[in-house]
Amino acid sequence: MSAGAMHPIRAQALADRVALEARHPDIFRPSPWARARALLVVGGLAALLVYGLWVLEFSPLKMIVGLGRLGEFMVHMIPPSTGTWAKFWIYLHALAETVAIAFLGVFTAAAIALPLGFLAAKNVVPNAVIHFLSRRMLDTVRGVDELIWALIWVSVVGLGPFAGVLALVCANVGAFGKLFSEAIEAADRKAVEGVASTGGAKLHAVRFGLLPQVLPVMAAQVLYYFESNTRSATIIGIVGAGGIGLHLAEQIRVLEYQHVSALILMILVTVALIDMVSTRLRFALIGDRGAR
């Protein structure tokens, strides 16, 4: 908006500025203390950024050369192509493998994490020691990245997708255990107390009071993870644990950029499809709450 078209209210306010400042001193002059603190925080963050860029050996020259080469790759990537149909079928099989790894990884982990989640929930096992130990154990399992798990499992069961499944199971058990126990702790106590008041045993209370409440929430979380695990399953092939990652890493190394873009495109389409299906299923399971 140009100055000529200034709104009359704005013009009026600008003319009245001195009086306005006198009337609302706290708005026009925020306390110098708060201002200094904000400056200090921003300055500290910026200083750490500069220090980081220096330590990590960023340099303008490196960026220009790298960006130039990246631009070159982009040009070579178009159009995406797998060369021959035979290659395409190989990639498609690897993609199916990836989805299978994600599927098995997620649902096996969910089955294992279910009892662990109850164990780690404060309102089911009100023992502080068990609670602490199970939570810390889940944290430890979760702290190890799936790529690390994949490397470990490759050295146990050998190269191939099976190692990938086991790696995803391990990584997911930690995450699910934590999510499930939180869902259980957030459940309504009334149903549990109702079952207990009719003379139900502890297990009855869990089965009929707790499980119906938390199962839909858990199912939604598991479905949500299925999508993100498909993404994870695409990369564990980089360390030899099956799936499309192996081909992707190989094609990047041999500079076959059309294959690379075709592979990325295939992954994007698959992830989008799974996202759509899992969102639908989540929606069917728990209605609006599961849509996000």
């Binding site: 493998e97 299978a100 790894i101 098995l104 069961v157 099976f162 499944v165 099956g242």
Partner: peptide, 9 residues
């Protein structure tokens, strides 16, 4: 199916 594709043994 997933088990067969992922060569679960």
């Amino acid at each position: 199916v997933a088990g067969i594709v992922a060569e679960v043994r």
